[in-house]
Amino acid sequence: MEKITKDRLDEVLKNPPPENGRYIRVGMSSCGVAAGAAEVFALLRSEVEKRKLAVPVVPCGCSGGCHSEPLVEVCVDGLPSVTYGKVNAEIAMRIIEEHVRDKRLVQDYIVDAPMKRAVAL
């Protein structure tokens, strides 16, 4: 692994790396995994690969909305970032086809649970 030096950290502070504007994040903490996030994650990843979509599927921790797990946050060009709750294989497929491919948000599964309203200082 490349060593992380003081200069490297200084550089991050001076020129923060741009936030990646494209991602599909899947909550993969215990609460998410217990609700089926692992399957959803695998499915999203394989679909993205198969369709050669330019959006990385990445795991993340629990954002707090455990009641709506599995949570999938989707951020693609041209649409504001939204989070889907209680995602299963079927909804995951719809996310790929409707949201990512057709740029049409999937009806009835978006959650805007409190964690998304949180202020990060």
Partner: peptide, 12 residues
């Protein structure tokens, strides 16, 4: 609102 300090990176 909630304020995220401890969980500032959780879910991100």
């Amino acid at each position: 609102e909630q304020v995220r300090i401890v969980m500032r990176n959780c879910g991100i």
